[in-house]
Computed example of a mutant assay.
Amino acid sequence: MNMIERTRPRSGLRVLVTAGASGIGKAIACAFREAGAKVLICDIDEDALGTFAKDFPDVLTRVTDVSDETQVDQLLAMASEQLGGLDVLVNNAGISGPTGAIDELSVEEIRRTLDIDLMSQFLVLRRALPLLRANEAGTIINISSVAGRLGYALRTPYAAAKWGIVGLTQSLAKEAGPDGISVNAILPGVVRGARIENVIRSRAESLGISYEEMEAQYLSQVSLRRMVEPEDVAGMALFLSSPAGANISGQAISVCGNVETI
């Protein structure tokens, strides 16, 4: 196998991507599909999932709220039955959470962010690990954020969850490593798409400035002065699942153009 071949995942990988119907998740799911993987995605957005299924009928889909234990159990049962097992898990589901000072946030807003962004990864992992262990090998990729390495004023629940994902990743890498399973976190930066537009808009409103001013502030804090594309994150996920990435584990890898502060 030459070096170029080593940077590509092998064909036929069985891959689960949570929140895979749009944004980063969709880019990752499509990248694995193009690489010859058998892919299952879930999403809570039925309309987005329906559109994805229409565009990519060879990809398995399931409506799932990953913060619900029963629904997650059913999702992983589907992976076992219809994929025949699991080689790669991409824990991608998450929400932006509320914007505001911590003493202005409701307990419900805080709990929902932690449940969807962090607790959901635990729920998926506890059912996915037995499938990965059955292969005596596997790849886990947890999607965190640059907010998982930098303090993020006015976005404390989100940042707390994303830092938690990094701790989960580094701890699980030690736990699952003896079974041949690599565990890494990808930390995207300012990723082009609807989600960052909503974040910028909410933050601009909270600070009383225009959307354009807020967007300029975000990009001024990125060394490369540009947004990341969803496909950039997908490319890293493919690499970590390839032979060339087989010995990378326990890492928090930023794909962000070097976000300096947020």
Rank of each mutant, 00 (worst) to 15 (best):
D45R: 10
D45P: 10
E46T: 12
D47Q: 14
D47M: 11
D47K: 15
A48G: 15
A48P: 12
L49I: 08
G50P: 00
T51H: 12
A53G: 12
F56N: 15
F56M: 10
D58Y: 12
L60D: 11
T61S: 14
T61W: 13
V63N: 12
V63F: 09
V63H: 14
T64M: 09
T64W: 09
E69A: 11
T70F: 13
T70D: 12
Q71F: 10
Q71C: 07
V72R: 10
L75T: 09
A77T: 13
M78G: 01
E81P: 00
D87L: 03
D87P: 04
V90M: 05
N91P: 12
N92E: 10
A93D: 07
G94E: 02
I95V: 15
I95C: 11
T99L: 07
I102S: 09
D103G: 00
E104C: 05
L105C: 04
S106W: 05
E108K: 09
E108P: 13
E109Y: 03
I110H: 01
T113R: 06
T113W: 07
T113S: 11
D117M: 02
D117V: 03
L118W: 01
M119E: 08
L123F: 10
R126A: 03
L129G: 00
L129E: 03
A134Q: 14
A134S: 15
N135G: 02
N135P: 02
A137C: 10
G138F: 00
I143Y: 04
I143E: 05
S144V: 09
S145C: 08
V146Y: 01
G148I: 01
G148Q: 02
L150A: 10
G151S: 10
G151H: 00
Y152L: 14
L154G: 02
R155V: 04
P157D: 05
P157T: 04
Y158I: 03
A160H: 00
A161E: 02
K162P: 08
W163V: 00
I165M: 01
L168Q: 05
L168D: 02
L168P: 05
T169S: 06
T169P: 14
Q170S: 05
Q170I: 02
E175G: 02
E175K: 07
G177V: 12
P178V: 12
